[in-house]
Design a protein around this nucleic acid. Sequence first.
DNA 1: GACCGCATGTAACGCGTTACATGATTAA
DNA 2: TTAATCATGTAACGCGTTACATGCGGTC
Lengths: 178, 178
Amino acid sequence: MPRPRVLPFIILGLLNKNGSMSGRDMIKEFKNEISEFWSVSHSQLYPELQRMLEEGDIEVRKGSSNLKVINYQITKNGIEKLNQWFSESINLKNDDLTSVKLYCIVDRRSPLLSEIFEKEFDLHNQKLKHLKERRQMLFQNQEQINNEYGHYLILTRAIRREKAYLDWLKMNKSKKNR
Amino acid sequence: MPRPRVLPFIILGLLNKNGSMSGRDMIKEFKNEISEFWSVSHSQLYPELQRMLEEGDIEVRKGSSNLKVINYQITKNGIEKLNQWFSESINLKNDDLTSVKLYCIVDRRSPLLSEIFEKEFDLHNQKLKHLKERRQMLFQNQEQINNEYGHYLILTRAIRREKAYLDWLKMNKSKKNR
DNA sequence: GACCGCATGTAACGCGTTACATGATTAA
DNA sequence: TTAATCATGTAACGCGTTACATGCGGTC
């Protein structure tokens, strides 16, 4: 069994947020706003849109002003799928998509937000703990560090990165949602 | 023209660092040490090893104790390719591999290190500047933030991440190399 | 009417994963 | 000797990119 596709969900998230978009619009939003966390090229997007049409998650918006530009909108079917995606709990496997999910949540008071923050905090706290244990185990003295300096470097970088992310999560966890 | 392969270089880096390894050894090192930054599965690795054999970058080490385990070592050809990879200058396109490159550099006094730190600093300083400009442009008041809260969140996260990385780079740039 | 830009479409390929297969080594 | 384990191998597919193709729409 191959891994389930994720691009459809991201497209649904965009359509749900913006109402109606053409393929071109999506490409632009991907490139300008989400490229830090996610990327897609048009040669991947257009076939996916056709497939989603067939599966009934999106539909062509009637009355387009331009013959060439095709505007899509989400269907009830699609909204259902999207909500299911949102409510899937975060784990190590799908964590790379958490930022994209966040991006699609426009309402500051959404209960999904604090859920995500809590879960992410636990997950990355665990990760930080594991990284620190590895540093402790592998690099107990200066000689071991000098013996594999590159390895030591990227381990310290990973630890820094996780710490910074946990700080950010902590800050947002403690914020009131209004 | 398809994108050039990168897995061969990483394999060369490992072999250069460790002397002689079997496919299994590489898998283990990938999983245990580099998985934070890079991953590979055996079904990708083994065909790659065969291809590299054909291309003359690696060779089978003679006198293996075990009939089944195949131990590889790097050839002169391979060392040349590896050094060329190391000396390629870092840019936005190949930046995702910088951590793996670092990992393969064992010598703390290697001149490559400070080169990488300098270049990375410039690159990510630029990135941070761009992110801050976008935040400035898109979110000038609380209303705009509340209107697209998820977008605001991931933008602030990206800014934090870049700041943390720049701090780490600054720390390592200023370290004496002995 | 000739030209260019742009939204959309198609093809090929590298990257990475899961699933399944094979044959050698080791354990019972 | 039978069973389990393990290193290696193969297949299919989703993800993402570059290159190339098509055809509408506007500009000169």
